[in-house]
Design a protein around this nucleic acid. Sequence first.
DNA 1: AGCAATGTCTATCAAGACTGTAGTCTCAGA
DNA 2: TCTGAGACTACAGTCTTGATAGACATTGCT
Lengths: 152, 152
Amino acid sequence: MKVSSRGLYALKALTHLAEAYARGLVKIHEIAEEEQIPEKFLEGILVTLKNARIVASQRGREGGYRLRRPPAEVFLGEVVRIVDGPLAPFGDAVELAYRVKTEPRHAGLFDLFLDVRNAAARILDHTSLADLVGRNRRLLAARARPAARPKR
Amino acid sequence: MKVSSRGLYALKALTHLAEAYARGLVKIHEIAEEEQIPEKFLEGILVTLKNARIVASQRGREGGYRLRRPPAEVFLGEVVRIVDGPLAPFGDAVELAYRVKTEPRHAGLFDLFLDVRNAAARILDHTSLADLVGRNRRLLAARARPAARPKR
DNA sequence: AGCAATGTCTATCAAGACTGTAGTCTCAGA
DNA sequence: TCTGAGACTACAGTCTTGATAGACATTGCT
Protein backbone atom coordinates (compact mmCIF):
# COMPACT_ATOMS: atom_id res chain seq x y z
CA MET A 1 0.00 0.00 0.00
CA LYS A 2 1.08 3.51 -0.71
CA VAL A 3 -0.45 6.72 0.58
CA SER A 4 -0.32 9.55 -1.97
CA SER A 5 -0.61 13.28 -1.35
CA ARG A 6 -4.30 12.87 -2.08
CA GLY A 7 -4.52 10.26 0.65
CA LEU A 8 -2.62 12.33 3.15
CA TYR A 9 -4.77 15.37 2.43
CA ALA A 10 -7.91 13.28 2.79
CA LEU A 11 -6.82 12.02 6.18
CA LYS A 12 -5.84 15.47 7.38
CA ALA A 13 -9.14 16.93 6.22
CA LEU A 14 -11.10 14.16 7.92
CA THR A 15 -9.15 14.69 11.10
CA HIS A 16 -10.17 18.30 10.92
CA LEU A 17 -13.81 17.36 10.42
CA ALA A 18 -13.55 14.90 13.30
CA GLU A 19 -12.32 17.61 15.64
CA ALA A 20 -15.09 19.90 14.44
CA TYR A 21 -17.74 17.20 14.55
CA ALA A 22 -19.77 18.91 17.27
CA ARG A 23 -19.62 22.23 15.45
CA GLY A 24 -21.49 20.95 12.39
CA LEU A 25 -20.71 22.17 8.88
CA VAL A 26 -17.18 23.29 8.03
CA LYS A 27 -16.26 25.19 4.88
CA ILE A 28 -13.65 23.88 2.46
CA HIS A 29 -11.86 27.18 2.77
CA GLU A 30 -11.36 26.76 6.51
CA ILE A 31 -10.01 23.23 6.11
CA ALA A 32 -7.71 24.21 3.26
CA GLU A 33 -6.32 27.15 5.15
CA GLU A 34 -5.76 25.50 8.50
CA GLU A 35 -4.46 22.23 7.10
CA GLN A 36 -2.35 23.84 4.39
CA ILE A 37 -4.02 22.04 1.50
CA PRO A 38 -4.50 23.54 -2.01
CA GLU A 39 -8.16 24.49 -1.92
CA LYS A 40 -9.14 23.33 -5.39
CA PHE A 41 -7.35 20.06 -4.96
CA LEU A 42 -9.10 19.48 -1.66
CA GLU A 43 -12.41 20.14 -3.40
CA GLY A 44 -11.91 17.12 -5.63
CA ILE A 45 -10.85 14.94 -2.72
CA LEU A 46 -13.95 15.85 -0.76
CA VAL A 47 -16.16 14.96 -3.72
CA THR A 48 -14.57 11.52 -3.72
CA LEU A 49 -15.22 11.17 0.00
CA LYS A 50 -18.79 12.34 -0.49
CA ASN A 51 -19.43 9.76 -3.21
CA ALA A 52 -18.04 7.16 -0.83
CA ARG A 53 -20.51 8.38 1.81
CA ILE A 54 -17.83 9.30 4.32
CA VAL A 55 -18.84 12.94 4.39
CA ALA A 56 -21.96 14.90 3.51
CA SER A 57 -22.14 18.37 2.01
CA GLN A 58 -24.47 21.28 2.21
CA ARG A 59 -24.55 23.74 -0.66
CA GLY A 60 -25.16 27.44 -0.71
CA ARG A 61 -24.29 30.11 1.79
CA GLU A 62 -23.46 28.69 5.16
CA GLY A 63 -22.82 25.41 3.39
CA GLY A 64 -19.90 23.11 4.06
CA TYR A 65 -18.91 19.58 4.88
CA ARG A 66 -19.41 17.30 7.83
CA LEU A 67 -18.73 13.70 8.71
CA ARG A 68 -21.63 11.41 7.95
CA ARG A 69 -20.79 9.16 10.90
CA PRO A 70 -19.31 9.86 14.33
CA PRO A 71 -15.48 9.98 14.28
CA ALA A 72 -15.29 6.73 16.23
CA GLU A 73 -16.99 4.91 13.39
CA VAL A 74 -14.74 6.02 10.54
CA PHE A 75 -11.71 3.78 10.18
CA LEU A 76 -8.56 4.77 8.38
CA GLY A 77 -8.41 1.57 6.37
CA GLU A 78 -11.67 2.49 4.72
CA VAL A 79 -10.45 5.97 3.83
CA VAL A 80 -7.13 4.76 2.46
CA ARG A 81 -8.86 2.16 0.31
CA ILE A 82 -11.19 4.79 -1.14
CA VAL A 83 -8.48 7.28 -1.98
CA ASP A 84 -5.40 5.14 -2.63
CA GLY A 85 -6.71 1.67 -3.33
CA PRO A 86 -6.09 -1.71 -1.68
CA LEU A 87 -3.86 -2.07 1.37
CA ALA A 88 -1.88 -4.96 -0.15
CA PRO A 89 1.65 -4.22 -1.39
CA PHE A 90 0.72 -5.84 -4.69
CA GLY A 91 -2.75 -6.17 -6.20
CA ASP A 92 -5.45 -6.79 -3.62
CA ALA A 93 -6.28 -9.55 -1.15
CA VAL A 94 -8.43 -11.42 -3.67
CA GLU A 95 -5.79 -11.36 -6.38
CA LEU A 96 -3.10 -12.47 -3.96
CA ALA A 97 -5.15 -15.42 -2.77
CA TYR A 98 -5.79 -16.34 -6.38
CA ARG A 99 -2.12 -16.16 -7.30
CA VAL A 100 -1.11 -18.29 -4.35
CA LYS A 101 -3.15 -21.05 -5.96
CA THR A 102 -2.36 -20.45 -9.61
CA GLU A 103 1.35 -19.67 -9.43
CA PRO A 104 2.75 -22.49 -7.33
CA ARG A 105 6.35 -21.51 -8.10
CA HIS A 106 5.76 -18.25 -6.23
CA ALA A 107 3.00 -19.18 -3.82
CA GLY A 108 5.26 -18.27 -0.90
CA LEU A 109 5.81 -14.77 -2.21
CA PHE A 110 2.14 -13.97 -2.65
CA ASP A 111 1.37 -15.58 0.66
CA LEU A 112 3.94 -13.29 2.25
CA PHE A 113 2.39 -10.27 0.57
CA LEU A 114 -0.88 -11.33 2.15
CA ASP A 115 0.82 -11.29 5.54
CA VAL A 116 2.02 -7.75 4.92
CA ARG A 117 -1.43 -6.68 3.82
CA ASN A 118 -2.99 -8.22 6.91
CA ALA A 119 -0.50 -6.49 9.17
CA ALA A 120 -1.41 -3.14 7.63
CA ALA A 121 -5.13 -3.91 7.75
CA ARG A 122 -4.88 -4.91 11.41
CA ILE A 123 -3.64 -1.43 12.20
CA LEU A 124 -5.63 0.71 9.81
CA ASP A 125 -8.95 -1.07 10.13
CA HIS A 126 -8.84 -0.77 13.91
CA THR A 127 -7.93 2.88 14.13
CA SER A 128 -10.73 5.41 13.84
CA LEU A 129 -10.62 9.15 13.35
CA ALA A 130 -11.48 9.46 17.05
CA ASP A 131 -8.46 7.29 17.90
CA LEU A 132 -6.30 9.53 15.74
CA VAL A 133 -7.41 12.66 17.50
CA GLY A 134 -6.72 10.98 20.83
CA ARG A 135 -3.31 9.91 19.67
CA ASN A 136 -2.51 13.46 18.61
CA ARG A 137 -3.40 14.70 22.05
CA ARG A 138 -1.33 12.07 23.81
CA LEU A 139 1.71 12.74 21.65
CA LEU A 140 1.38 16.44 22.18
CA ALA A 141 1.07 16.01 25.92
CA ALA A 142 4.09 13.70 25.96
CA ARG A 143 6.09 16.39 24.22
CA ALA A 144 5.06 19.04 26.69
CA ARG A 145 6.41 17.09 29.67
CA PRO A 146 8.87 14.51 28.37
CA ALA A 147 10.27 13.78 31.84
CA ALA A 148 6.91 12.58 33.10
CA ARG A 149 6.70 9.94 30.41
CA PRO A 150 7.42 6.46 31.74
CA LYS A 151 10.37 4.85 30.02
CA ARG A 152 9.76 2.08 27.54
CA MET B 1 4.79 0.63 0.34
CA LYS B 2 3.81 -0.56 -3.06
CA VAL B 3 5.41 -3.33 -5.10
CA SER B 4 5.44 -2.61 -8.84
CA SER B 5 5.81 -5.07 -11.72
CA ARG B 6 9.50 -4.34 -11.61
CA GLY B 7 9.57 -5.31 -7.97
CA LEU B 8 7.61 -8.48 -8.53
CA TYR B 9 9.86 -9.47 -11.43
CA ALA B 10 12.93 -8.76 -9.32
CA LEU B 11 11.70 -11.01 -6.53
CA LYS B 12 10.75 -13.77 -8.95
CA ALA B 13 14.11 -13.59 -10.67
CA LEU B 14 15.96 -13.66 -7.35
CA THR B 15 13.91 -16.64 -6.24
CA HIS B 16 15.01 -18.34 -9.43
CA LEU B 17 18.64 -17.51 -8.74
CA ALA B 18 18.25 -18.72 -5.17
CA GLU B 19 17.00 -22.08 -6.35
CA ALA B 20 19.84 -22.28 -8.85
CA TYR B 21 22.44 -21.05 -6.37
CA ALA B 22 24.41 -24.30 -6.41
CA ARG B 23 24.39 -24.39 -10.20
CA GLY B 24 26.33 -21.17 -10.56
CA LEU B 25 25.69 -18.76 -13.44
CA VAL B 26 22.23 -18.54 -14.97
CA LYS B 27 21.49 -16.79 -18.25
CA ILE B 28 18.94 -13.96 -18.45
CA HIS B 29 17.20 -15.87 -21.19
CA GLU B 30 16.55 -18.84 -18.93
CA ILE B 31 15.13 -16.70 -16.14
CA ALA B 32 12.96 -14.70 -18.52
CA GLU B 33 11.55 -17.79 -20.14
CA GLU B 34 10.84 -19.82 -17.03
CA GLU B 35 9.52 -16.93 -14.97
CA GLN B 36 7.55 -15.36 -17.82
CA ILE B 37 9.28 -12.00 -17.68
CA PRO B 38 9.91 -9.78 -20.75
CA GLU B 39 13.58 -10.43 -21.41
CA LYS B 40 14.69 -6.89 -22.16
CA PHE B 41 12.80 -5.55 -19.19
CA LEU B 42 14.41 -8.11 -16.93
CA GLU B 43 17.81 -7.08 -18.26
CA GLY B 44 17.36 -3.61 -16.79
CA ILE B 45 16.14 -4.94 -13.49
CA LEU B 46 19.16 -7.19 -13.13
CA VAL B 47 21.49 -4.27 -13.78
CA THR B 48 19.82 -2.44 -10.91
CA LEU B 49 20.32 -5.45 -8.67
CA LYS B 50 23.91 -5.71 -9.79
CA ASN B 51 24.60 -2.08 -8.94
CA ALA B 52 23.08 -2.75 -5.54
CA ARG B 53 25.47 -5.68 -5.14
CA ILE B 54 22.71 -8.24 -4.74
CA VAL B 55 23.79 -10.19 -7.81
CA ALA B 56 26.97 -10.50 -9.87
CA SER B 57 27.26 -10.95 -13.60
CA GLN B 58 29.66 -12.60 -15.97
CA ARG B 59 29.84 -11.50 -19.59
CA GLY B 60 30.72 -13.41 -22.72
CA ARG B 61 30.02 -17.00 -23.68
CA GLU B 62 28.88 -19.03 -20.74
CA GLY B 63 28.09 -15.79 -18.96
CA GLY B 64 25.09 -15.14 -16.75
CA TYR B 65 23.97 -14.00 -13.32
CA ARG B 66 24.33 -15.38 -9.83
CA LEU B 67 23.55 -14.26 -6.28
CA ARG B 68 26.42 -12.52 -4.60
CA ARG B 69 25.44 -13.86 -1.19
CA PRO B 70 23.85 -17.14 -0.10
CA PRO B 71 20.03 -17.08 -0.36
CA ALA B 72 19.70 -17.12 3.42
CA GLU B 73 21.47 -13.76 3.60
CA VAL B 74 19.35 -11.84 1.12
CA PHE B 75 16.28 -10.32 2.77
CA LEU B 76 13.21 -9.22 0.88
CA GLY B 77 13.08 -5.86 2.61
CA GLU B 78 16.43 -4.99 1.09
CA VAL B 79 15.28 -5.97 -2.39
CA VAL B 80 12.00 -4.09 -2.17
CA ARG B 81 13.75 -0.97 -0.96
CA ILE B 82 16.18 -1.12 -3.88
CA VAL B 83 13.55 -1.60 -6.55
CA ASP B 84 10.45 0.10 -5.15
CA GLY B 85 11.71 2.45 -2.48
CA PRO B 86 10.99 2.77 1.26
CA LEU B 87 8.64 0.39 3.05
CA ALA B 88 6.66 3.19 4.71
CA PRO B 89 3.18 3.93 3.33
CA PHE B 90 4.18 7.58 3.08
CA GLY B 91 7.69 8.98 2.74
CA ASP B 92 10.30 7.03 4.66
CA ALA B 93 10.99 6.31 8.31
CA VAL B 94 13.19 9.39 8.72
CA GLU B 95 10.65 11.73 7.20
CA LEU B 96 7.85 10.28 9.29
CA ALA B 97 9.81 10.72 12.51
CA TYR B 98 10.55 14.29 11.47
CA ARG B 99 6.92 15.06 10.73
CA VAL B 100 5.77 13.62 14.03
CA LYS B 101 7.79 16.37 15.65
CA THR B 102 7.14 19.23 13.24
CA GLU B 103 3.44 18.75 12.53
CA PRO B 104 1.93 18.42 15.98
CA ARG B 105 -1.61 18.65 14.63
CA HIS B 106 -1.03 15.37 12.80
CA ALA B 107 1.61 13.70 14.93
CA GLY B 108 -0.73 10.78 15.53
CA LEU B 109 -1.16 10.13 11.85
CA PHE B 110 2.53 10.02 11.07
CA ASP B 111 3.16 7.98 14.17
CA LEU B 112 0.58 5.50 12.91
CA PHE B 113 2.25 5.38 9.50
CA LEU B 114 5.44 4.50 11.34
CA ASP B 115 3.63 1.60 12.97
CA VAL B 116 2.53 0.34 9.57
CA ARG B 117 6.02 0.68 8.19
CA ASN B 118 7.45 -1.21 11.14
CA ALA B 119 4.94 -4.00 10.71
CA ALA B 120 5.95 -4.39 7.08
CA ALA B 121 9.64 -4.17 7.92
CA ARG B 122 9.26 -6.79 10.63
CA ILE B 123 8.05 -9.23 8.00
CA LEU B 124 10.15 -8.29 4.99
CA ASP B 125 13.42 -7.74 6.82
CA HIS B 126 13.19 -11.14 8.48
CA THR B 127 12.35 -13.18 5.41
CA SER B 128 15.21 -14.28 3.19
CA LEU B 129 15.19 -15.78 -0.27
CA ALA B 130 15.92 -19.12 1.38
CA ASP B 131 12.83 -18.67 3.58
CA LEU B 132 10.80 -17.91 0.47
CA VAL B 133 11.91 -21.06 -1.29
CA GLY B 134 11.09 -23.06 1.82
CA ARG B 135 7.67 -21.42 2.05
CA ASN B 136 6.98 -22.31 -1.57
CA ARG B 137 7.77 -25.91 -0.85
CA ARG B 138 5.59 -26.06 2.24
CA LEU B 139 2.64 -24.47 0.47
CA LEU B 140 3.04 -26.83 -2.45
CA ALA B 141 3.20 -29.83 -0.16
CA ALA B 142 0.15 -28.61 1.75
CA ARG B 143 -1.74 -28.45 -1.50
CA ALA B 144 -0.72 -31.95 -2.49
CA ARG B 145 -2.20 -33.49 0.66
CA PRO B 146 -4.70 -31.05 2.14
CA ALA B 147 -6.16 -33.67 4.49
CA ALA B 148 -2.88 -34.08 6.32
CA ARG B 149 -2.79 -30.40 7.19
CA PRO B 150 -3.76 -29.70 10.78
CA LYS B 151 -6.86 -27.54 10.99
CA ARG B 152 -6.56 -23.95 11.99
C1' DA C 1 -37.13 38.27 -7.43
C1' DG C 2 -32.41 38.94 -7.58
C1' DC C 3 -27.70 39.04 -5.74
C1' DA C 4 -23.83 37.05 -3.67
C1' DA C 5 -21.69 33.33 -1.58
C1' DT C 6 -20.70 28.73 -1.83
C1' DG C 7 -20.30 24.03 -3.44
C1' DT C 8 -20.23 20.78 -7.84
C1' DC C 9 -18.68 19.21 -11.96
C1' DT C 10 -16.01 18.75 -16.15
C1' DA C 11 -12.20 19.52 -18.75
C1' DT C 12 -7.66 20.06 -19.08
C1' DC C 13 -2.79 20.07 -18.17
C1' DA C 14 2.11 19.30 -17.06
C1' DA C 15 5.30 16.40 -15.08
C1' DG C 16 6.74 12.25 -13.93
C1' DA C 17 6.74 7.23 -13.36
C1' DC C 18 6.12 2.80 -15.28
C1' DT C 19 6.27 -0.79 -18.81
C1' DG C 20 8.15 -2.57 -22.50
C1' DT C 21 10.90 -2.51 -27.03
C1' DA C 22 14.94 -1.69 -30.09
C1' DG C 23 19.51 -1.12 -31.35
C1' DT C 24 24.16 -0.75 -30.48
C1' DC C 25 28.30 -1.44 -27.68
C1' DT C 26 31.49 -4.17 -24.94
C1' DC C 27 33.47 -8.04 -22.97
C1' DA C 28 35.04 -13.03 -22.48
C1' DG C 29 36.06 -17.25 -24.26
C1' DA C 30 36.55 -20.76 -28.05
C1' DT D 1 38.61 -13.18 -34.81
C1' DC D 2 34.11 -14.80 -34.34
C1' DT D 3 30.24 -15.63 -31.34
C1' DG D 4 27.32 -15.43 -27.48
C1' DA D 5 26.24 -13.09 -23.63
C1' DG D 6 25.49 -8.92 -20.63
C1' DA D 7 25.59 -3.39 -20.64
C1' DC D 8 24.08 0.87 -22.08
C1' DT D 9 21.22 4.36 -24.37
C1' DA D 10 17.20 5.88 -26.16
C1' DC D 11 12.58 6.05 -26.81
C1' DA D 12 7.50 5.57 -27.14
C1' DG D 13 3.10 4.63 -25.27
C1' DT D 14 0.40 4.54 -21.32
C1' DC D 15 -0.91 5.57 -16.70
C1' DT D 16 -0.72 8.18 -12.45
C1' DT D 17 -0.27 12.24 -9.86
C1' DG D 18 -0.84 16.79 -8.45
C1' DA D 19 -2.91 20.79 -9.68
C1' DT D 20 -5.72 24.63 -12.15
C1' DA D 21 -9.55 26.99 -14.63
C1' DG D 22 -13.94 28.02 -15.40
C1' DA D 23 -18.73 27.11 -16.16
C1' DC D 24 -22.72 25.58 -13.64
C1' DA D 25 -26.03 24.87 -9.77
C1' DT D 26 -27.95 25.69 -5.33
C1' DT D 27 -28.90 28.14 -1.32
C1' DG D 28 -29.49 32.12 1.95
C1' DC D 29 -30.41 36.73 2.46
C1' DT D 30 -32.30 41.16 1.38
